[in-house]
């Protein structure tokens, strides 16, 4: 090989290397841009969902007769405040009702406590997309407006569907209300999901207060970790 050919080959190789390096740079820049764009887009979608949820809960219809900043229904008129956060789909809530419901009822009858029931919806993903927790909480609000909160609350736990099932359909929710003596206004509210937005609002408010599981029971603002009948009675004093 002549000296000239050698030099030409070397020069060609350098040019090729530079071209390859430039291509790598261009590819890196554009792939980086693509990654950042994809992540920003994902973030914006999330933000959009939050904004729409917020405007939904902000404009939600609040049922009449609520207490505690519109988040609960009160039963009884005693001096000691008992707050109960329940999800109608939650099996442990049902156990709590079976175990301690009678005790609460006695305390209410003896005019010792006011029980504030907060129907929240944290198990919406346990009903195959039918959002039973939200629908049940909304129906309970409609029952409260018809003056039958306690009876309806009881009926929902007595007829509690299994976690992971579709939950009770609206027809069944209406039927339970009719049996408790509720009328057409109740049926319409359930079928229209009138208070479903309110259920979301109550759930958000509960989360804001640090309630992250159900049942959460507080006596005069202090959480009872294990709300057995004895624990309730002694906490109420």
């Amino acid at each position: 090989m002549s000296k000239g050919t050698k030099q030409r080959t070397a020069a060609k190789r350098i040019v090729e290397q530079q071209k390859a390096a430039e291509k790598r740079r261009t590819v890196t820049i554009w792939t980086t841009v693509a990654v950042v764009a994809a992540l920003v887009l994902a973030g914006l979608i999330g933000w959009g969902v939050v904004s729409s949820q917020r405007s939904d809960t902000a404009s939600a219809a609040v049922p009449s007769g609520t207490v505690d900043e519109g988040t609960a229904f009160a039963v009884g008129g005693g001096p000691v405040m008992v707050d109960v956060y329940e999800d109608f789909m939650c099996p442990i809530c049902n156990e709590f009702e079976k175990q301690s419901g009678a005790t609460l009822q006695q305390l209410i009858s003896a005019n010792k406590v006011t029980v504030r029931y907060h129907p929240i919806a944290i198990l919406d993903d346990k009903s195959n997309g039918t959002k039973y927790s939200t629908r049940a909480a909304g129906a309970a609000a409609a029952a409260a407006e018809g003056g039958k909160f306690q009876q309806y609350h009881q009926a929902l736990f007595d007829n509690q569907p299994a976690e992971g099932s579709d939950g009770l359909d609206n027809a069944k929710l209406v039927e339970l209300g009719t049996s408790a003596g509720l009328g057409d206004a109740f049926a319409t509210a359930v079928n229209d999901g009138k208070y479903d937005g309110w259920a979301g609002k109550v759930t958000d408010e509960a989360s804001k207060r640090g309630v992250t599981g159900t049942p959460t029971v507080l006596v005069n603002g202090k959480q009872l970790r294990n709300p057995t009948p004895d624990a309730l009675t002694s906490a109420v004093g």
């Binding site: 994809a38 958000d204 989360s207």
Partner: peptide, 21 residues
């Protein structure tokens, strides 16, 4: 809570985007 709401909504979508990438 307001910040947690936003983080909680954005996070799964970012996770999916990273997974796809």
């Amino acid at each position: 809570f307001e910040a947690a709401q936003v983080v909680g909504a954005v996070q799964p979508l970012v996770e999916i985007a990273l997974g796809l990438l």
